[in-house]
């Protein structure tokens, strides 16, 4: 899977992009977040408040209950502020 982080999530994690092999215990976005939160303090800080995190799978909005698959592009970001 290709993981992307934007805005302050990118800053807290310290990278905007990384690859992660999908393990069998990661079935949904929520599973992935739980996995990432345990990777270190930057990740824990970025994913601290799930209420302010949006997720997109393959460039379309998704939910924390959405299933994920090997090869997916999964992006995490705060609520958007364009316009």
């Amino acid at each position: 899977m290709k993981l992307l982080y934007f805005a302050w999530m990118r800053q807290r994690i310290g990278t905007g992009e990384e690859n992660l092999a999908k393990s069998d215990d990661i079935a949904t976005v929520a599973d992935l977040i739980a996995h990432l939160k345990a990777k270190g303090p930057g990740y824990a800080a970025a994913f601290q408040n799930p209420a302010v995190i949006k997720v997109a799978i393959n460039q379309d909005y998704a939910d924390f209950t959405s299933p994920i698959a090997e090869g997916d592009e999964i992006a995490f970001f705060p609520p958007v502020t364009g316009g």
């Binding site: 805005a7 992006a75 970001f77 705060p78 609520p79 958007v80 502020t81 364009g82 316009g83």
Partner: peptide, 23 residues
């Protein structure tokens, strides 16, 4: 719709540093 759905994020620079704009 653009303001709530298009993936852009603004960070503001002021004299006292950088702040991410909140939705």
């Amino acid at each position: 719709w653009l303001k709530t759905k298009a993936p852009f994020w603004k960070v503001e620079e002021t004299g006292v540093g950088e702040t991410w704009v909140e939705a």
